[in-house]
Design a protein around this nucleic acid. Structure first.
Length: 124
DNA sequence: TCCCTGACTGGTT
DNA sequence: AAACCAGCCAGGG
């Protein structure tokens, strides 16, 4: 019906965030996904940046956010994260799941990247 | 409504 | 392999 649906103030758009969280929740323990993968699996292939934005606003403790890394296979730096405490936490969690990390916080993307429950023709 | 910002990405240099 | 650059999209001032 009425396609007109003005966003209410305080409603804080971000109606897309839940779709990203849903994808992340499906990542198996010991595997990772890139921001781009999450965006793609959520049906928004060009919104990788939105995924990072969504995670910075994440409150739901049930979402394994630490299983999301950038396209270079490394833990991304947040803004306003003094001393990188958040990044260190993410590294520790990945290590705990059996994923080895380089001194630079990089992992073997080719080996740990989750195929998304369905094999893709080509990885990017 | 314009302008800047960001847990990104892929291609170039 | 690292640094740069341009494209990307929605939120917030």
């Amino acid at each position: 019906m009425q396609s007109k649906k003005p966003p209410r103030p305080g409603a804080s758009g971000a109606a897309e965030y839940p779709s990203y969280y849903a994808v992340i929740r499906r990542i198996p323990r010991g595997r990772v996904l890139t921001y781009g993968d999450v965006a793609r699996l959520a049906g928004r292939p060009t919104s990788a940046r939105r995924v990072g934005y969504a995670l910075s606003a994440l409150k739901d403790p049930g979402v394994p956010w630490w299983r999301v890394v950038n396209a270079r296979g490394e833990v991304s730096a947040r803004s306003g994260d003094l001393l990188g405490a958040c990044e260190l936490d993410q590294r520790a969690r990945l290590l705990q799941e059996g994923i080895p990390l380089d001194p630079d916080g990089r992992l073997e993307l080719l080996q740990y990247r989750w195929s998304g429950s369905a094999p893709r023709k080509s990885v990017r």
